[in-house]
């Protein structure tokens, strides 16, 4: 077991994890943050995306021990039912979630983009979510949902 210290959604968590434990397993199974999903566990679908130090990464490919001392943000950390992040509201308004399974990763990826570039073009949004698979929507409503919360459109 390896000791790790993570800041998850603003709270510091000290854990002992086996070295082979991935961050995906840690957030879902050790911390109970099941908003982070998984569709392949091999880095091929994007559903497990979380933010590490503000940057979207695939938690299924990240060893928890390698994330020690990092700031991790999961979908639970950016808004709630009562105080949703503008993206969380926008996804509903634009029908950008159908089954909802890719949605947490999609929203986090979009949030990281908007934090860096508050006025991305549609092309930039598409490039940013090109590692996130969605099987339901055909992506177009997702592009609209993200475009609606750019600085320009707010």
């Amino acid at each position: 077991m390896e000791p790790v210290t993570l800041t998850v959604n603003g709270a510091t968590r000290r854990l002992f994890v086996p070295p082979q434990r991935t961050l995906l397993e840690t957030v879902r199974e050790d911390l109970g943050l099941t908003g982070t999903k998984h569709g392949c566990e091999l880095g091929e679908c994007g559903a497990c995306t979380v933010l590490i130090d503000g940057v979207p990464i695939l938690s299924c490919l990240t060893l928890t021990v390698n994330a020690t001392d990092c700031e991790i943000v999961t979908i639970e950390g950016i808004g709630s039912m009562t105080e949703p992040h503008p993206l969380q509201r926008s996804f509903g308004e634009h029908g950008a979630a159908q089954c909802g399974y890719c949605t947490p990763a999609m929203i986090l990826t979009a949030k990281a983009l908007l934090d860096r570039d508050p006025n991305p073009s549609e092309e930039t949004i598409a490039e940013a979510i090109a590692g996130n698979m969605c099987r339901c929507t055909g992506y177009l409503s997702i592009l609209s949902a993200v475009a609606a919360v750019t600085e320009e459109n707010q």
Partner: peptide, 9 residues
């Protein structure tokens, strides 16, 4: 290379 997330790591 691969996808945006993979390029981040």
């Amino acid at each position: 290379v691969a996808s945006p997330q993979i390029r981040n790591q």
